[in-house]
Design a protein around this nucleic acid. Structure first.
Ligand SMILES: [Mn+2]
Ligand SMILES: [Mn+2]
Ligand SMILES: [Mn+2]
Ligand SMILES: [Mn+2]
Lengths: 222, 222
DNA sequence: CCACATTAGAAGGTAAACCTTATTTTCACA
DNA sequence: TGTGAAAATAAGGTTTACCTTCTAATGTGG
């Protein structure tokens, strides 16, 4: 047993459940299996074990959902991950896109005392490098609540507040395009349907697909 | 597989082998089993697996010894542990006695890039909080080479350079006695045989058993 | 030199997480 | 309302790292 009393595998299932479904909706086995890179049979097996242990509930043919106990642990794992991300990026100056993977290792090997001390050392950061909130009080959300970039109107100026996609390829791509958290952009052009968005940046321009814009949280700028 | 390609269990066996026997002598199974808190049968099993994989050699009825490959990994694990110890103690201000255990978790979850960045962040420290060297070039020693406190003569002034015993109880005891790495002490009194030593500290006095004094490295002071 | 503790090995077992292949159940929607 | 995809279950297998109990070999100290 690791620090929190759960194995690394269990922690990963719980974390994924929280990220994919939050407290709201149940998550389909196939989705979990996809994210964790295991077969659906393996995911099923594990999820039943978690159900047996009271960490998730199962609505057959609908999906699995965290219980209060499960959410508790998931929340804690996410907290550990995001604090480590901050440390790796801010203090060690490592690449944010790759830091996620490294933090995902460290998160399972970190005792509560260490995480609390790290939190203080970093001066209680509010978000991870991708802009997602670092949960601190018992029922903090796992995801930000911003309006998605894809919903912006032409000419509107918005600030990028969070990237929901954690794929290093995607994050590196965004970085290359000059898009960063905190950055203010305005939508110059946006075709109908699934067509890409053209953005004006502080210096320069960027074009990104609608699918990607759907994973970027924003807030209105005065 | 963890960062270095070896499981946590394997890394712990290799590290222990290095600490207990270095490159010099073979280590008895019973000693390993004791340190790792497993049965001798389990230790035997595992050591044979390591032997099969070319990480250790076995001289029947004499013990197991690291090969070059095994030493390589052991050295790296020790390096990771000691760098984390430094971070936990110096930056996070955590108790050195307990930091060892926490570092022993983190050491198995740390990618090479992270360790190199951490090393730089800490400005390439030479030793861990207990004074043991942090290996950096390929064939650095795992242990310091100081003269043991138990060999000091009466009236002699020595500086404490390293504590070999990693038991948190022991380290806490030493701390309570006012003994710290770097501290200069002089031997006031020392009975014959296994009798305790009386030391004069910068401010105060301390009495410690001969067994304990046997685990404390020192260097002569001008 | 021989007894006894240490070391080795043999046999069988557990639990966690994975896997594959195959079958059955159910839901959604066309 | 029937059917096909998704979900669930069944069955059997693997690897790692533990465990216990028992027996056999060995090297050293008295
Ligand atoms: Mn993880
Ligand atoms: Mn993040
Ligand atoms: Mn360890
Ligand atoms: Mn140390």
């Amino acid at each position: 047993m690791k620090p929190g009393g759960h194995s690394e595998a269990v922690e990963m299932y719980l974390k994924s459940l929280a990220v994919l479904g939050g407290a709201r909706q149940p998550v389909a086995v196939a989705q979990l299996a996809e994210k964790l890179q295991v077969t659906t049979v393996s995911a099923n097996e594990m999820l039943h074990r978690l159900s047996r242990d009271g960490l998730v509930t199962h609505q057959p043919y609908r999906g699995f959902q965290l219980t209060e106990a499960g959410r508790e642990t998931a929340w804690d794992v996410i907290r550990r991950e995001r604090l480590w991300e901050r440390f790796l990026v801010d203090q060690l100056k490592l690449d944010p896109a790759r830091a996620i993977g490294w933090a995902c290792q460290l998160e399972h090997a970190t005792a509560p005392e260490v995480i609390e001390a790290l939190d203080g050392f970093l001066q209680y950061p509010a978000t991870c490098p991708q802009g997602q909130p670092i949960p601190r009080s018992a029922d903090d959300a796992v995801h930000g609540e911003g309006r998605m970039l894809s919903e912006a109107e032409i000419g509107e100026r918005v600030r990028l507040t969070a990237f929901d996609d954690e794929d290093p390829e995607v994050l590196t791509y965004l970085q290359r395009q000059g898009l960063a958290i905190g950055q203010v952009v305005s939508v110059v052009e946006m075709g109908p349907r699934r067509s890409p968005l053209t953005l004006r940046l502080e210096n320069g321009q960027a074009v990104i697909g609608r699918d990607l814009a759907l994973t970027i949280q924003t807030e209105r700028v005065a």
